[in-house]
C-alpha cells in the first residue's frame, strides 16, 4: 500500500503521454488505408490486437509497452494486406462491387423520391399561381424552380456525405452495421421502392383527372415521374416505366444481396 501511494503522479504522466484508445484508433486508420483488407478482416485483426494487448497487460506490462509489442506481433499493415490479397483476391472486388451497387440503388431511389417531391411542390405553386391570377411570366418560372430544387436535392446529400467522410465524422462501421442486418436492408429498400411507386401511381391518376377536368397544360408545368403501375392511357409505352421502376431496381437489389460480404450475414445484432 505504501508503494502504491507513490504512483499517482507517475500514472498521470503516462496517461498524458500515451492514450491507448488514440493509439488503437491510429493503428485502425493505418489498416483502413490498406485497399486489400475487407472490413471484416480489419475487425478481426483489431480484436486480435486487443486480445494481445490484454495478454501483455496480464503479464504486468504497462499500456504503452503492451500496445507496441502487440502491434509488432500482428505485423506491418502493408505486409498483412499483401498476405490477405494473396489468400483471396476475389473478396476485395466483391466488397467494392457491393458498395457500388448499394450506392447506385440508393441514389436511384432517392432521385425518384426527390423527383416526385419537386414535381408536387412545383405543380402546387403553378396551380396556386393560376388560381390567384399571377402573370404568365411568373407561372413559367415555377417550372424552373422545380428543376432547380431537384438538382439541389440530388447534389446536397452527396456533398453532405462527402464532407462528413472527409472530416472523419462518419465511420465506415456505422454504414456497414446498417447493412449487416440483411432483413433490415431488404425491408428498407423494398418499402422505399413501394412508397415511391405508390405515390407515383396516385399522382399519375390525379394528374390525369386534373388535366381532363381543367383542360389546362400549365397544371403539369413539370412532368410527373412515371410509376411502374401507371395507367395505360399515357402515350409512353408501359414497358419503359416497368423496366425503369420494376426490373432495374429489383435487379440492383438482387446484385446487392448477392455481393453482400458473406461474413456480415452471420454477424449477430449488436446488443
Amino acid at each position: 500500500m505504501a508503494g502504491r501511494s507513490q504512483h499517482p503522479v507517475q500514472i498521470m504522466e503516462n496517461q498524458t503521454r500515451f492514450d491507448l484508445n488514440v493509439a488503437i484508433e491510429s493503428w485502425r486508420n493505418e489498416l483502413t488505408a490498406q485497399p486489400n483488407l475487407a472490413s471484416d478482416d480489419r475487425h478481426e485483426l483489431e480484436a486480435h490486437l486487443c486480445d494481445a494487448i490484454a495478454g501483455f497487460r496480464q503479464r504486468g506490462l504497462n499500456e504503452e509497452e503492451s500496445f507496441w509489442l502487440a502491434r509488432r506481433r500482428v505485423g506491418q499493415p502493408q505486409q498483412i494486406g499483401e498476405e490477405f490479397v494473396k489468400a483471396n483476391p476475389a473478396i476485395v472486388w466483391r466488397e467494392r462491387g457491393f458498395w457500388m451497387a448499394s450506392a447506385i440503388l440508393l441514389a436511384f431511389l432517392w432521385n425518384e423520391f426527390a423527383g416526385i417531391l419537386c414535381c408536387v411542390i412545383s405543380n402546387s405553386i403553378t396551380s396556386l399561381s393560376i388560381r390567384f391570377g399571377f402573370e404568365s411570366e411568373w407561372i413559367g418560372l415555377t417550372a424552373y424552380f422545380g428543376t432547380g430544387l431537384l438538382m439541389l436535392l440530388n447534389i446536397l446529400p452527396l456533398l453532405g456525405v462527402a464532407i462528413l467522410l472527409a472530416k472523419g465524422r462518419v465511420r465506415e462501421d456505422f454504414i456497414l452495421n446498417f447493412f449487416a442486418r440483411k432483413r433490415f436492408l431488404i425491408s428498407t429498400l423494398v418499402s422505399l421502392w413501394i412508397t415511391v411507386n405508390g405515390v407515383m401511381f396516385y399522382l399519375n391518376t390525379l394528374s390525369y383527372n386534373n388535366t381532363l377536368v381543367e383542360n389546362n397544360n400549365l397544371i403539369r408545368s413539370m412532368p410527373l415521374p412515371h410509376g411502374a403501375f401507371r395507367l395505360t392511357i399515357d402515350p409512353q409505352p408501359a414497358w419503359t416505366a416497368l423496366s425503369h421502376n420494376l426490373i432495374f431496381p429489383l435487379l440492383l437489389l438482387a446484385l446487392v444481396l448477392w455481393l453482400m460480404p458473406p461474413q456480415n450475414r452471420k454477424t449477430p445484432n449488436r446488443a
Binding site: D41, H43, E44, L45, A47, H48, C50, A52, A54, R73, V74, G75, Q79, I80, E83, F84, K86, A87, N88, Q263, K266, T267, P268, A271
Partner: peptide
C-alpha cells in the same frame, strides 16, 4: 506470425473445412 494466421484460416473456410461466426466474448468485445 499473428497477422499471417488469418489468411490461412480464411482459406480453410473457403475450402469448406471450417466455419466462422462473430460472437461477443465475456470481455464485451
Amino acid at each position: 506470425s499473428d497477422g499471417m494466421l488469418y489468411p490461412v484460416l480464411h482459406r480453410l473456410e473457403r475450402d469448406g473445412l471450417i466455419e466462422s461466426e462473430w460472437k461477443e466474448a465475456d470481455t464485451g468485445r
